[in-house]
C-alpha cells in the first residue's frame, strides 16, 4: 500500500471529487426541504428547489408591478457598479501609494506608519461617519469599499515592491534609468499582476462591505434586496440571490485570473507547460 500523500486522482477523478461536495450539499438540502414540507406545506425556511425557479423568474424576467423595473438586473447593476468603482479606486490608490512607499525611502518614512494605523480601523465602525459625511447614496458605499480594501492593497503592494531583488534596481540604474523610468519599465510591469492577485483576494471583503452598506441604506442592490425580503422570510429569493452573488464573485475572480495569464505571460514562463 502506497502512502496516501503519493496517491493522485486522474483527470476524471479530479472532476468527480470536485463535484462530490456540491452533490452532497444539494441532496442534503432537497431531503431536508422535502421533510419539512411534508410536515408543514406552508413552511418557508427550506423552500422546494422549484420555487427558487419561480422566484428568479419573477425577479429577473418579469417587470416589477410597482416600478416596472426588472428588479434582479437593477440590483445586479447597482451592486456591480458600486463594487467596480470601489475596487478600481482602491487599486489605483494602491498602485500610486504602494509603489511610492515601496520604492521611495522618504515616502515610506512619511506614509508607512500612517497607512499602518489606517488599516487597523475597522471599516464597519466608521460606516455611520461615512453616511453622515458622504450622505446615504452611492458615495458612502463606494467609500466604505475603498476604505475597507485599499489599506490592504497598499500595504501588500508596498511589501512586494520592497521584496524586489535589489539587484534589479541597481542594474536598471547602471543602464542609466531615472527613477521615473525604473517605475514605468521595471517596477510597474512586475507589480501589475501582483496587484491583480491582491484584488482577487480582496473580492471577498469588498462584497462584505458592499452588502453591509446596502443592507443599512439603499434603494436597490443585491444586499438591499436580501435584507428587504428577509422581513417576509422569503427564502426563495434570498437563497438564489446568495447563489447569484457567489457566482458573480467567482466569475470576477476567474476574469482577473485570466487577465493575469493573458497579459503577463512571463509569470508562467519556465514553470512547466504554459
Amino acid at each position: 500500500m502506497r502512502r496516501i500523500i503519493n496517491l493522485r486522482p486522474g483527470r476524471g477523478g479530479i472532476v468527480l471529487w470536485g463535484a462530490l461536495p456540491f452533490l452532497v450539499a444539494g441532496v442534503a438540502y432537497a431531503v431536508a426541504s422535502a421533510e419539512r414540507l411534508a410536515v408543514n406545506p406552508n413552511d418557508k425556511l427550506l423552500p422546494q428547489l422549484s420555487s427558487f425557479g419561480t422566484a428568479l423568474a419573477r425577479l429577473a424576467l418579469n417587470p416589477d408591478q410597482r416600478t416596472g423595473d426588472y428588479l434582479m438586473w437593477v440590483d445586479t447593476l447597482a451592486s456591480l457598479q458600486r463594487l467596480g468603482i470601489g475596487l478600481s479606486v482602491a487599486a489605483a490608490l494602491a498602485l500610486v501609494l504602494g509603489l511610492a512607499i515601496g520604492l521611495i525611502p522618504y515616502v515610506r518614512a512619511g506614509l508607512s506608519p500612517f497607512v499602518g494605523v489606517i488599516s487597523m480601523i475597522p471599516p464597519m465602525a466608521v460606516l455611520p461617519v461615512l453616511f453622515i459625511v458622504f450622505g446615504l447614496d452611492e458615495l458612502s458605499k463606494v467609500v466604505l469599499i475603498v476604505l475597507g480594501v485599499a489599506p490592504f492593497l497598499v500595504r501588500d503592494l508596498a511589501l512586494r515592491v520592497e521584496d524586489m531583488p535589489r539587484e534589479q534596481l541597481i542594474k536598471a540604474q547602471t543602464l542609466g534609468a531615472s527613477t521615473w523610468q525604473i517605475v514605468i519599465r521595471v517596477v510597474l510591469p512586475q507589480m501589475l499582476p501582483r496587484l491583480i492577485d491582491a484584488v482577487r483576494l480582496s473580492l471577498g471583503p469588498a462584497w462584505l462591505f458592499l452588502i453591509s452598506a446596502e443592507a443599512i441604506a439603499a434603494t436597490e442592490g443585491l444586499g438591499y434586496r436580501i435584507f428587504l425580503v428577509r422581513r417576509y422570510m422569503a427564502m426563495d429569493v434570498i437563497l438564489p440571490y446568495v447563489a447569484w452573488i457567489t457566482l458573480l464573485a467567482f466569475l470576477s475572480d476567474a476574469a482577473l485570473r485570466w487577465i493575469n495569464a493573458r497579459f503577463f505571460p512571463w509569470l508562467r514562463a519556465g514553470k512547466g507547460q504554459s
Partner: peptide
C-alpha cells in the same frame, strides 16, 4: 555616489528583468 551608466554590473543572480 549612485550607480550610473559608466559602470555596468553583473550579479550572481537576479541581474536580468524577468518580465522582459
Amino acid at each position: 555616489a549612485e550607480p550610473g551608466p559608466d559602470r555596468g554590473v553583473v550579479f550572481q543572480r537576479y541581474s536580468v528583468f524577468p518580465h522582459l
